[in-house]
Write a protein that binds this DNA or RNA. Structure first.
Lengths: 185, 185
DNA sequence: TCCTCCATACCAACCAGTCTGTTTTGTAGT
DNA sequence: ACTACAAAACAGACTGGTTGGTATGGAGGA
């Protein structure tokens, strides 16, 4: 069972960094130091099954990660900014995207594979739910909270894209600064 | 010269829909009804050269497109909403993304090819410039205008991503509705 | 003896890119 | 206006490498 988790762990990172099509099976095998037989033992349906497992794994990790941050701070504003701050740190340290995003996977696979599209959809929904709940707890109407939560998700996702193209964490920083202006009924 | 433009035209659409790695040369050739020799005659350096040509072509098309919309409407708010409205229409009609975005290409290629990353960066910068200029003309300070322009770009980019995963134009609609709340000094 | 787990050899399909040869086209000479 | 010729444009076969996926067999514990 350990091997399976190892595969998921490493493959998740690779998929996030290079996208689904950008990572070959052999690359994954080498990174994990396992053989093809082992991989296909744990994921008989192959690469796509592995991807979905990775997405589910990300789902749990990202969710608990964000939830923890959101428990630590009282207001959504503080929590959001702390969260983006963490993203900025990660980006500046590793110079690549390692969390909270799967745009590459979405844009590659959304039109190709329904199961993958669905897994991504679940992930976004869950994250938005965290934002939304906190906003409702602060007194926002459910509808407004959902709208703002969507804006947070979208702008972070797009912001990461801009950071990638500009090789700079500036876009996320600006977003972190501007976003709170939306937190009004 | 006609063939070259044809190739760029068709390849641009394919790249937008499926990403760089998602489109094979043979697929492009078939879609254009041309031969490999012809393609490599116009793009001696191969696929990546073609991609960059496509990005430049998108640059011009998208830029003039947005500029026209922004001339038609007096306020940035109206213009932005009209622009997003057009995106929504496109998405609902074709059920795929056809303009104003190249996230798939960015996320796939940003870390792999400097020239491509640069072409993408130019594109984003140019689009943001249009937003920013209009905002400055409305009286915003340059810094605020840049921040808001960045937020527009990021949220639209992320919004398209959400539309793709949810197979719905709702995210963009909500963004169009919420975005104007940012238009304050 | 099974069954889980892993390793390896192998496969057809496809990839981007090269090479050679043919057609088309523009141009200069008479 | 007709020919001659070179360059541009195109066609298609071919290559080496890689892709995801399969089939077979072995090691080790229950």
């Amino acid at each position: 069972m350990n091997t399976k988790l190892l595969i998921i762990d490493i493959a998740t990172t690779l998929f996030q960094q290079k996208g689904y099509l950008g990572v070959g099976l052999n690359e994954i095998l080498k990174a994990c130091n396992i053989s093809k037989g082992s991989l296909y033992h744990h994921f008989p349906k192959g690469k796509e099954e592995l991807l979905i497992a990775c997405l589910q794994s990300m789902n749990e990790e990202v969710t608990t990660d964000i939830e923890e941050i959101f428990k630590q701070y009282q207001t959504t504003q503080e929590a959001t900014q702390a969260m983006i701050g963490k993203l900025v740190e990660d980006f500046e340290r590793e110079d690549t995207i390692a969390g909270y995003t799967f745009s590459s996977i979405v844009s590659e696979m959304a039109s190709l594979s329904e199961p993958v599209r669905n897994a991504c959809s679940l992930l976004y929904t869950k994250i938005q739910g965290i934002y939304s709940n906190k906003l409702v707890a602060e007194g926002f109407s459910k509808e407004t909270a959902n709208s703002i939560a969507l804006m947070i998700t979208a702008s972070i996702e797009g912001g990461l894209m801009l950071c990638l193209t500009q090789k700079s964490s500036n876009p996320l920083k600006i977003i972190s600064h501007v976003l709170p202006n939306l937190f009004k009924e």
